[in-house]
């Protein structure tokens, strides 16, 4: 059986999802200020790796820097509400691409599982 990654259209679909997702993130007043001076290419490559992994595609995603990568944002007030917002926007992006709800939920669960690392808990 082909993976969900293949079913939704492989790399082009993931790339499009990542771009759509970041357009939402960068215009969402709750969280956009955390992204003022990020390297968009790098950030989106990481996100593409994450999505490819949870969709069962070929990947070399290593989430081990989740904790380290967000540490500097804690002093800027990063908290649960911001993680909620990110997961909400990710799910919204995936639904707009007509990805089945159970797959969206599955991806949201994996994102959810990084919460404590993101918030250094």
């Amino acid at each position: 059986m082909s993976s969900i990654y293949e079913q939704i259209g492989g790399k082009p679909a993931v790339d499009m999802a990542v771009e759509n997702f970041y357009r939402k993130v960068l215009t969402d007043e709750r969280i956009c200020h955390f992204f003022d001076d990020i390297d968009m290419e790098k950030q989106m490559a990481k996100q593409a790796g994450f999505l490819t992994m949870v969709l069962g595609g070929p990947n070399s995603y290593s989430g081990k820097d989740m904790r380290q990568g967000h540490q500097h944002l804690l002093s800027k007030g990063l908290n649960d509400s911001h993680v909620d917002a990110v997961i909400e926007l990710l799910a919204q992006t995936l639904r707009e691409l007509n990805i089945p709800q159970e797959v969206v939920q599955q991806i949201a669960n994996v994102a959810e599982s990084t919460r404590n690392d993101v918030l250094s808990r």
């Binding site: 771009e19 970041y22 357009r23 960068l26 215009t27 968009m40 290419e41 989106m44």
Partner: peptide
């Protein structure tokens, strides 16, 4: 950034 938000692919 503005072009990306306006729909141009990065």
């Amino acid at each position: 950034k503005q072009l990306f938000l306006a729909g141009v692919s990065l």
